[in-house]
Design a protein around this nucleic acid. Structure first.
Lengths: 342, 342
DNA sequence: AAATAATATGGTTACGTGACCACATTATTT
DNA sequence: AAATAATGTGGTCACGTAACCATATTATTT
């Protein structure tokens, strides 16, 4: 292994001077610098990362704990994270929390990381366990139900979040503004309490504010299974077969919206001419389906970048850490919603 | 920071004995072990990873360089990689090679990794550069056009691959076995030379062997753009509008197949009753579309695991390294192909 | 009972680096 | 010309750990 010493010997200087060149601090004569750089290139010297880490007490690495990265929502968020991290000279380890025995957490905590980013899925228990087992590790969280985290932690719990209720409300209001009044809610089923489902709450608020009735069959809650991706296709299909009437579907994510579109087209109706569909997330799929999907764009990349920034503020002990950053969601208009007003 | 020394002091032993407990080697009295474990728990001691790395000259980390992980094909492969790595006590850094300035490579090479896994995209130039700039870093590659890599490297270039020509041939032969003889090839356009496109070659071989004609409009090559995901939707749509006849589409990947299905359904025909469609890859999308997509299953998770195994063989200096591992691809039957024979 | 083996423990050392200090040498100011 | 500042360089040390060796104690064999 080539070490700093070898470079120093070859360049005819002391190891200290080599360090000065590598870290670009202190005084180094022009000639000496040239010799050292030549020696580094010739010997193909790469500073030993372990020694640097030990000496500087920093790893220049962060860990990201995420639900299955095959979920493109998190994949896109991860890309924002990685991009920002690289820009700041950090690299990124990725841990997928899926069906894994719990003790993987130990491995993460013992790992060579300066901080952690957590993309939370719905397993609150896991998050709780996670937070309890670590003390003062710099941590930033993305979770769309952040209000549910209720764990005391001296330093607080910095997070970046979106207000899903608000998002869903905007989505439904957009449909209403376009003249729709028979609007279906198509969402996932999280718990028995309907009012714990912030997405549904957003839908309900928008409907009530505009004095629109919510018929029973307007409310479609799809069960979530571990492995099976349910798209709501069957549910919408069944509704249409029964001849139920509605002019628009407000889906709580794009996958459900895509399922709805397929069901509608297959039953001989047209999107958006007969029925409009709107989603939430703006994943790649939204650009691929036909018609392309109008949806609420969650700026995943941007959220990823913000998480890194927030984490760095903690690592570098900035005293102006924003504990709670809300990200605004904007409508992305495409083809799947028809304006009935004009 | 709590160090081994603190634990030793608390437990009334020497640091050496603490190390023996942590690494679980050498003799330790039962009583002493108990005291040490208690001290570790009480002090919340975590061994300093940097010091361990420096002392053992290993990082217990590997880097994975991949095209955009938002591509679910690579995401699923990554999940196999990560799963296997974790099982073996390694963690994984992920680098996305997308539109990034070239010098990110330096960062990877200077990183704390025992080895690297490369999921190759189509940028041969990048791979070349990569391989030239590193010497004896343990490395395993997934690339479906591995035969094109032609860079001398003392230790060879261990890789896991699939024979795309064979895969496409199997795919077309399955259609033929189901009574189809007017089969469209729907693939991407890689270079001017048609015979450098191994997927097309597989299609051509199958057709010729069964003495089936390949009409001009059977050959559809879609351009690949950096950002725009093209699905072949427009191409198939145009073909159908012209009234061209065919009974099946053999797409070179699932995304193209999904695009074909949408185009067919939209023009009023049914899949698979009127036209059958088969894909390659078996990404999540294949289970989501309607009808569900029959496709050639590329065992992405398994490939990921094999890459890690192959890398570990290099890291641990196994002398029985399989340089070139071909992975067999199997048909995954779903709903999008109709049997015309029965 | 003596010799050997197994068990148990502490001390020393080196891994490769960055920070710091001491000390030259040269350039600039008084 | 003397005093001060800026520039340049090497030596020492410690970061926290795992491997090794030496040695003490206990258990087993001869």
């Amino acid at each position: 292994m080539v070490t700093r010493k070898d470079v120093a010997l070859k360049a005819g200087v002391s190891p200290s001077t080599v360090s000065r060149v590598i870290n670009n601090n202190g005084y180094v004569a022009f000639e000496a610098r040239k010799r050292i750089e030549a020696a580094i290139a010739e010997l193909n010297y790469i500073p030993n990362r372990a020694a640097q880490n030990l000496r500087t007490k920093s790893y220049r690495q962060i860990a990201c704990i995420s639900p299955a990265i095959s979920n493109s929502f998190f994949a896109e968020m991860f890309m924002g994270i990685e991009e920002m991290a690289i820009e700041l000279g950090y690299s990124l380890s990725l841990y997928n929390i899926t069906n894994r025995k719990q003790n993987y957490l130990k491995q993460v905590l013992e790992g060579p990381y300066d901080g952690m980013i957590l993309l939370a899925s719905h397993e609150l228990i896991m998050i709780k366990e996670l937070l309890e087992s670590m003390q003062k590790v710099p941590l930033s969280i993305y979770w769309d139900r952040i209000e549910k985290i209720n764990i005391p932690r001296e330093a607080g719990l910095p997070h970046v979040y979106i207000d899903l209720q608000k998002v869903m409300r905007q989505s439904v209001e957009y449909l209403i503004a376009n003249g729709h009044n028979e609007i279906l809610f198509l969402g996932h089923y999280y718990s028995k309490e309907r009012n714990s489902n912030s997405r549904y709450m957003g839908y309900e608020m928008a409907m009530k504010e505009h004095h629109l009735p919510i018929k029973d069959y307007y409310r479609i809650f799809i069960e979530m299974y571990e492995d099976k991706l349910s798209t709501g296709y069957e549910a919408i299909k069944m509704l249409l077969d029964k001849g139920q009437h509605f002019t628009a579907v407000a889906a709580s994510n794009d996958l459900l919206a895509a399922g709805a579109i397929r069901a509608i087209i297959e039953s001989g109706k047209k999107v958006p001419e007969d029925i409009s569909v709107i989603g939430v997330d703006n994943i790649e799929l939204a650009k691929i389906v036909t018609p392309t999907l109008t949806t609420m764009n969650i700026p995943k990349r941007e959220i990823g970048r913000m998480l890194v920034q927030q984490l760095m503020d903690q690592i570098h002990n900035e005293n102006t850490i924003e504990q709670s950053i809300e990200v605004e969601v904007m409508l992305k208009e495409r083809e799947s919603v028809k304006n009935l007003v004009i």
